[in-house]
C-alpha cells in the first residue's frame, strides 16, 4: 500500500477527515442550497404562467365545502360527535386551507417525464431531479397564499371562536404544514418513481388518493369514525397530511399531544424521505440499465 493511501486510510479510520462520500454529499448540498433561490424563482414564474390552471385547481378543490353543506345540515338538530354547525364550518374551512397550501403535483410530472423520456434532460443537469421538482412545487405556495387570502378572512370571521389562542400550538402549525407538504411530496415522489418499475404507477396513486380522502379527515373528521377505525386512522400517515394541522389550528389537541404528534409526523417525513431516496436509487439503476 502506498504511503498516501495508507495515510488516507488511517485518517479516515481515526475520523479526523470526512470521507470522500461525506464531502461529496456536503458539496452537493451546498450547491443545491446555492441553486435553490433560482429554482424557486423559476418555479414561481412557471406558477404565474400557469395562473389560470392554478386558479381552476383551487376552485375545483371544493369537496370540503360540499361536505360542510352536508354536515351543517345534519348538525342543525344538534351537535354530531361534539361538532356543532359552527364546528363543522371551522373544520372544513381549515381543511380546505390546509389542502390548498399542501398540494403538490410531482407525481403527474414525474410519471409523464418517465414515460416520455424527458427525465433524461433533468438527469443531465447537475442537481437532483427530485430537489428541482420540490422547489418547483414549493414555489406555488406564495401564490396560493395570496389567492387564499379571502378564504382566510372568511375562516377567521366565521370561526374566530374555534381557532386556538395557544401560542405553542401556533408555533407548531407552520411545522405541521411543512411536514404535511413533505409527506405528500414524498408519497407522490415514491409513486412517481415507481413508474420506472411498473406501468400502472398512477393506479397506485389513485389508491392512495382514495384512502387519503377517507383517512386524512378530508371528507369526514376523524372524530366521527367508529372507535376502532379511528384508532387505526390516527396511526396512519394520512392524518398527518391534513387532519393534524387542522387539529392544531382548531386547538383540538393539547400542547403535549401537539408535540408528540409533531414528532410522529416528522418521523413519517423522515421515513418517506428515506423511502424516496432508496427507491430513486434503485429506479436510477433500472433507468440506467434499460434506458429512457
Amino acid at each position: 500500500m502506498s504511503a498516501t493511501s495508507a495515510d488516507a486510510l488511517s485518517t479516515n479510520h481515526l475520523g479526523g477527515t470526512d470521507s470522500p462520500r461525506t464531502r461529496d454529499t456536503r458539496s452537493a448540498l451546498s450547491h443545491a442550497l446555492r441553486a435553490l433561490p433560482a429554482l424557486l424563482r423559476t418555479g414561481f414564474a412557471a406558477v404565474l404562467a400557469y395562473r389560470a390552471e392554478i386558479l381552476i385547481w383551487m376552485f375545483t378543490t371544493n369537496m370540503p365545502l360540499v361536505m360542510l353543506a352536508l354536515w351543517a345540515a345534519v348538525a342543525r338538530s344538534g351537535p354530531v360527535a361534539g361538532y356543532t354547525q359552527e364546528g363543522f364550518t371551522a373544520y372544513y374551512l381549515a381543511t380546505l386551507l390546509v389542502r390548498l397550501f399542501t398540494g403538490c403535483w410531482v407525481v403527474y410530472e414525474l410519471t409523464m417525464e418517465i414515460r416520455q423520456g424527458t427525465l433524461a434532460m433533468r438527469l443531465l443537469r447537475p442537481i437532483h431531479p427530485l430537489l428541482a421538482h420540490a422547489a418547483e412545487n414549493a414555489a406555488a405556495i406564495p401564490v396560493r397564499l395570496v389567492v387564499c387570502t379571502p378564504l382566510i378572512a372568511i375562516f377567521v370571521y366565521t370561526s374566530y371562536a374555534s381557532i386556538t389562542r395557544d401560542p405553542i400550538l401556533w408555533l407548531c402549525v407552520p411545522l405541521s404544514l411543512i411536514g404535511a407538504w413533505m409527506i405528500t411530496f414524498g408519497v407522490m415522489a415514491i409513486v412517481g418513481t415507481l413508474a420506472l418499475f411498473v406501468e400502472s404507477a398512477m393506479g397506485l396513486f389513485q389508491l392512495w388518493l382514495g384512502l387519503s380522502g377517507v383517512l386524512s379527515g378530508y371528507l369526514v373528521p376523524l372524530d366521527l369514525f367508529p372507535e376502532r377505525v379511528r384508532a387505526i386512522a390516527l396511526l396512519l400517515p394520512f392524518r398527518f397530511t391534513l387532519s393534524f394541522p387542522v387539529e392544531l389550528v382548531l386547538g383540538r389537541v393539547d400542547r403535549m399531544q401537539a408535540l408528540q404528534l409533531l414528532g410522529a409526523q416528522w418521523s413519517y417525513v423522515v421515513l418517506f424521505a428515506v423511502g424516496t431516496v432508496l427507491l430513486w436509487r434503485a429506479g436510477m439503476r433500472r433507468f440506467g440499465a434499460f434506458g429512457g
Binding site: 450547491h31 446555492r34 441553486a35 433561490p37 433560482a38 429554482l39 424563482r41 423559476t42 443537469r125 447537475p126
Partner: peptide, 12 residues
C-alpha cells in the same frame, strides 16, 4: 431567458 438564468445557477 428564464432557462438561461436557471442554468446559470445550476451550473454555478
Amino acid at each position: 431567458s428564464e432557462t438561461f438564468l436557471l442554468n446559470r445557477a445550476l451550473y454555478d
